[in-house]
Amino acid sequence: MSIKKQCKLLGVPRSSYYHKPKRKVSLEDELIMQAIDRIYLDEPTYGSRRMLDELKLLGYKLGRDRCRRLMRIMGIEPIYPKPRLSTPAKGHKKYPYLLRGLEIERSNQVWSTDITYIPLGDGHVYLTAVIDWSSRYVISWKLSNSLDTSFCIECLEEALEAEGKPGIFNTDQGCQYTSDAFTGVLKSHGIRISMDGKGRALDNVMIERLWRTVKYDDIFIRCYETMSELYQGLSAFFLKYNARKHQTLGMSPEQKYREGLSMEEAA
């Protein structure tokens, strides 16, 4: 398949396909950040102090300020007692968490999104995705070389165009999601906005599980070097993820999602 067709299918410009992230930190820092990412997947409650202890056990030599700075670049904070990603920008409205005690059983009842750090060669980029909560179906995903709001909005709009709209959309309290630009898209479609409660480790558990699967089943194994390799690899991975049988569901995420839609239409 030609690069032009691949980019069209992936929904990215050809310039992004060839893009290699510009170095924002030293190579040594990138290696430390990759170690932090692996530790954080297993221990998401670790703050900079405990993260530093783990890094030192692995042989890395750095201070707490440096550890804290690298975690900030990655966009991660301990799940408890602080929210996982960035805090809301000044003036941004925070919304209540609507999922507590809610039985989520239907397709398009609740969608969720998040951002995660992805190592790439001797640099890094960021991945965001929108998933259907009840089926674990990945509706859309996007990559960016920065923690900006635009790629989160693009991912949201792509999901809305592909699968209609959910009743509730859940996010963390990061500035990307509390921004007027992002919440404005949700409001314009009449979607109820839910945001993780501060310090609640399980409030966005479905997408947290997705990141763990993506990294252990693909990213850490394949060790992508370029953006083009990453686009192709993740495209193949998400197609496989949506199509393969999920042990808890007893079927694939896409099958569960489509079955849920059919039941809604029949009702």
Score class of each variant (00 low, 15 high):
128 T>N: 13
101 G>D: 05
213 T>H: 02
57 L>F: 07
241 Y>N: 14
145 N>P: 13
150 S>F: 10
27 L>W: 01
137 Y>M: 12
216 Y>H: 11
222 R>P: 07
255 Q>Y: 10
137 Y>Q: 08
229 E>G: 01
8 K>I: 07
69 R>T: 12
248 T>Y: 05
195 M>Q: 14
61 K>C: 00
265 E>I: 10
267 A>D: 00
12 V>L: 11
166 P>N: 05
125 V>Y: 05
26 S>A: 12
137 Y>F: 15
144 S>Q: 11
245 K>N: 09
126 Y>I: 02
142 K>Q: 14
180 D>E: 13
243 A>W: 04
204 N>M: 02
267 A>E: 01
116 T>W: 11
15 S>L: 07
60 Y>E: 00
14 R>Q: 07
87 T>H: 09
152 C>N: 09
30 E>G: 00
56 K>P: 00
37 D>S: 10
49 R>I: 14
264 E>L: 01
22 K>E: 10
251 M>F: 00
256 K>Y: 04
27 L>I: 00
235 S>T: 05
173 Q>L: 11
151 F>H: 07
215 K>M: 10
182 F>T: 00
78 P>E: 01
128 T>R: 12
45 T>F: 12
109 Q>W: 09
237 F>D: 09
222 R>H: 15
208 E>W: 15
217 D>P: 05
3 I>K: 12
89 A>S: 08
93 K>E: 14
227 M>S: 08
183 T>F: 08
37 D>A: 11
129 A>R: 06
240 K>H: 09
253 P>N: 05
230 L>G: 03
25 V>T: 06
228 S>F: 02
46 Y>E: 03
44 P>E: 03
117 Y>H: 13
223 C>P: 01
45 T>S: 12
32 I>S: 06
75 G>K: 10
201 A>C: 12
193 I>N: 03
84 R>F: 04
93 K>Y: 09
10 L>D: 09
164 G>I: 14
96 P>C: 01
188 S>H: 03
187 K>V: 13
72 R>M: 13
244 R>I: 15
250 G>F: 06
33 M>K: 04
168 I>P: 13
220 F>G: 11
68 R>W: 04
68 R>N: 05
16 S>F: 10
143 L>T: 03
97 Y>I: 03
197 G>E: 02
31 L>P: 04
209 R>W: 06
63 G>N: 15
144 S>G: 10
252 S>N: 15
169 F>Q: 05
211 W>T: 07
253 P>Y: 03
29 D>L: 08
131 I>P: 04
225 E>L: 15
163 E>A: 11
244 R>T: 15
156 L>W: 15
239 L>G: 10
150 S>V: 13
76 I>P: 05
137 Y>N: 11
205 V>S: 10
34 Q>N: 15
62 L>Q: 07
137 Y>W: 10
24 K>Q: 14
179 S>V: 03
108 N>H: 04
261 L>F: 11
214 V>M: 13
67 C>G: 00
69 R>S: 14
37 D>Y: 08
152 C>V: 15
176 Q>P: 04
85 L>Q: 11
187 K>Y: 12
110 V>R: 03
231 Y>A: 01
191 I>A: 05
179 S>Q: 04
219 I>T: 11
84 R>Y: 04
188 S>A: 08
127 L>R: 14
183 T>L: 06
105 E>N: 14
77 E>W: 08
101 G>M: 01
11 G>W: 14
149 T>P: 11
257 Y>K: 14
252 S>H: 15
127 L>D: 14
266 A>R: 08
264 E>N: 01
175 C>R: 14
70 L>A: 14
